[in-house]
Amino acid sequence: MTPVTRPRGERGPLASIGLHAGLLIAVAISLFPVVWLVLTSLKPRDSWLSAELQLFNDSSLDNYARVLTSTQFPQWLLNSVLTAGLTMVLGVFLAATTGYAVSRFRFPGHRSVMWLLLITQMFPVAILIVPLYNLMAGLGLLNQIPGLVIAYMTIAVPFCAWMMKSYFDTVPVEIDQAAMVDGLTPFGTFWRVVLPLARPGIAVTAFYCFMTAWGEVGYATVFMSQEDKRTLGVGLQQFVGQHWSDWGLMTASAVLIAIPAGAVFLLVQRHLITGLTAGATKA
């Protein structure tokens, strides 16, 4: 780095090149497997494991056609969208209220709540599955999307509540106080004033909740045994068995799965760069 100070936003050409080079390398690494996934999805079904390294051989959209017409992909997609969407909305809401309460109110137990939430994440999920299944069976929530959403809450909300708390901690308390002086209720302050300021945090948690539900397979496999209730993750596993696999279907549907996830990200990422910008903090 040059010791010479420059106005913000400007830097030497060397630094610019370095910056772009660094980012390009990172992009290459992060994209390579994804690109390979896309290329594989365009190959005929049995050439995925082929002795020859070929980038393009007999490219076609056959695999996509097969996924969309001869599997239950559309049904799985619908289930997944519902599950992930609900998880996202509920998860963000619950995480934000919890995080805000702990960040702002000095109520008895405000510290232990967060640590208790954290402890629930320490017991390995793989071992929780059987008792949780029995609980879900008892509550009549097996093969029900709400049941799965509740199960995902237990994974997503503690993390998200912690993240929201730390984002709220960076929003100055004076803002709340000003809002309360203006006559807003605590909830009104939270909802109308603080929440919009924590938008980057919400964007992160929303995407986190969505992706947790979108890519999860452990709970979904066990809780959703009915064929018409399966989510994408569960459905996809049908394409790769122990002693056989249909990589054409697997890769094509993986690409199709990544598209909605990408779309959700595009929606929320806009908020990543707004949030606490010029002047908003000056209460």
Partner: peptide
């Protein structure tokens, strides 16, 4: 900047179990 950001986040949009399979294949 936003292009970089989107491309760098892409791995997150690939469900973990799919990513595991791709990598095993790589």
């Amino acid at each position: 900047r936003s292009l970089y950001r989107v491309l760098l986040i892409l791995p997150w949009a690939v469900p973990a179990f799919v990513a595991a399979f791709i990598w095993r294949y790589l």
